[in-house]
Design a binder for these strands. Structure first.
Lengths: 183, 183
DNA sequence: CCACCCATGTAACTAGTTACATGATTTC
DNA sequence: GAAATCATGTAACTAGTTACATGGGTGG
């Protein structure tokens, strides 16, 4: 399981509350490891029980907010986990199964759904590209010395997402062509 | 959930036992929707209870083997399901999280694991390419009239797998370059 | 003062994984 | 007759999803 470790990476970058983590997961590390707030709160509680993180009420705050930070045991655990050997995840795409059903008993009119999916990919792609421009391209242009190892890796991760969406977008076009061709 | 529907697609292509399905899932539709035999047996039982499929002991056989075939209700359900609207699955790759951990507190020596993963992708790629040659390229060459809608779709699905593995393979190389560069 | 966002949770469910069990048949 | 593979399952666990609950603070 990766969630506790993903949370620790995020907390190392900046300590914050479970709520904040949930927000940040919606727009950074969560692109590659999505998690709902329910899951996050549950994991944080378990991690605190294990002594990987510790939470403290914000000083002088009137809210219930609890700020989590990573303890030394957490960092050790993270280091251990990083070198673990785990197989790449299996491609598992429902729409491919639908397509195969269409091959067996179709045509079943997948075109509408296909273009809906193309739109979703297009939208994600644009989101990623906007982030790339703002957080990487412009930043490096302004000050090339900022292009550290850390930034390069983070940029590569984002480019992974971009390539991923581009591939599926192209795939949607290819499938669309094929379905149009002879149905 | 797709498993029952994936199973029906497979059973429509050819009726068979749960055991056979588990074998076939290891080398065709299971590339895109993997399932263990435990899961398959469990689903088949549920599907039979719902009246989507029916099983019969093989005539004159001495084994416990039960052949499943899809009933009309099952075909109807499949047709209904195909047009359902479902979002594309989220990219969810543990190694990307590790990479980001490496960016935050690294370098942590991800190279070994990376080349292990590259090997896995390479191997899958070769498996797919062998299947492509045998089941599509050679077949069409021999008799172009065999290149039906059904075959074209199935070929496209396989090419999806090929592109997927090629992309991750390339990704491994890119990451490898970056890690070598400045660690 | 009402609606919205902040902030944290519980409960029940679903799908998939891991481990274990068992007996029959085929192959060497 | 031993080992491999055919063939079907049960049980317990893990991770993720969906639905619901609740109370405080902030902006119009």
């Amino acid at each position: 399981m990766s969630l506790p470790h993903a949370l620790m990476v995020s907390l190392i970058e900046k300590s914050c509350s479970g709520y904040d983590l949930a927000q940040r997961f919606g727009k950074s590390i969560g692109f590659f490891w999505p998690a709902s707030h329910q899951q996050i709160y549950r994991e944080l509680a378990k991690m605190e029980a294990k002594g990987w993180v510790k939470s403290e009420a914000e000083e002088g705050s009137k809210t219930r907010k609890r700020i989590y930070h990573v303890l030394d045991d957490g960092v050790q655990e993270l280091k251990r986990w990083v070198t673990e050997s785990v197989d790449p995840i299996q491609l598992r795409e429902e729409f491919v199964v639908r397509l195969r059903a269409d091959a067996a008993i179709g045509p079943l009119g997948l075109e509408t759904e296909l273009s809906r999916r193309a739109q979703i990919h297009q939208q994600k792609l644009e989101t990623y590209q906007a982030i790339e421009k703002r957080d990487f391209l412009d930043k490096i242009k302004k000050d090339p010395s900022k292009n550290t190892r850390e930034l390069k890796i983070q940029h590569l991760i984002l480019k992974t997402g971009i390539a991923y969406e581009e591939n599926w977008l192209q795939w949607c076009k290819d499938v669309g062509e094929l379905l149009k061709e002879d149905s």
